[in-house]
Computed example of a mutant assay.
Amino acid sequence: METLQLNHVKLTWLNGGVTHLDGGAMFGVVPKALWSKKYPHNDKNQIELRTDPILIQQDGKNFLVETGIGKGKLSDKQKKNFGVTEESELLHSLEKLGLTKENIDYVLMTHLHFDHACGLTEKVNNEYVSVFPNAEIIVSTVEWNEMRKPNIRSQNTYWKENWQSIESQVVPFEKEWVKGKIKMVHTGGHSDGHSILIIEDDHEMIIHMADIMPTHAHQNPLWVMAYDDYPMNSIDAKQKWLQFGIENQAWFTFYHDAFYRALKWNEHYEIVESVKRER
Rank of each mutant, 00 (worst) to 15 (best):
V131A: 11
R153Q: 09
N151M: 03
L91D: 01
V124W: 11
L90Q: 02
E143D: 14
R148F: 06
T157N: 08
C118I: 00
K160L: 08
K101Q: 15
H116M: 12
Y106H: 10
V139L: 10
E87N: 04
A135W: 00
S93N: 05
L94T: 02
V139F: 12
N151V: 02
E122H: 11
H116S: 08
K149N: 15
M109C: 15
Q155K: 15
E127A: 07
E161I: 15
V124L: 14
Q164C: 06
N81E: 14
R153G: 01
H111P: 02
L97M: 05
P150I: 05
P150M: 08
K80L: 07
D115M: 04
N125C: 03
N145D: 14
I104P: 04
E146S: 04
N126M: 02
H111Y: 13
Y106P: 04
C118D: 10
M109A: 10
N162K: 01
L97G: 01
N156Y: 05
M109P: 12
C118K: 01
P150H: 10
W163V: 07
K160D: 14
L120A: 13
Q155S: 12
W159D: 12
V124K: 15
I138Y: 09
E161Q: 11
S88A: 13
F132N: 11
N125Y: 09
I138V: 13
F82R: 06
N81Y: 01
V142L: 05
G119L: 05
T110C: 15
N151D: 15
S154M: 09
R153F: 14
E143I: 08
L108P: 08
H92L: 15
N156R: 12
E86G: 05
K149Y: 06
E89T: 11
I137D: 07
H113A: 08
E146T: 05
L90F: 14
N162H: 09
E122Q: 13
G98I: 09
E161F: 05
N156K: 12
N151I: 03
D115I: 03
V129T: 11
E122R: 14
L91G: 01
W163K: 00
Q164F: 14
F82P: 03
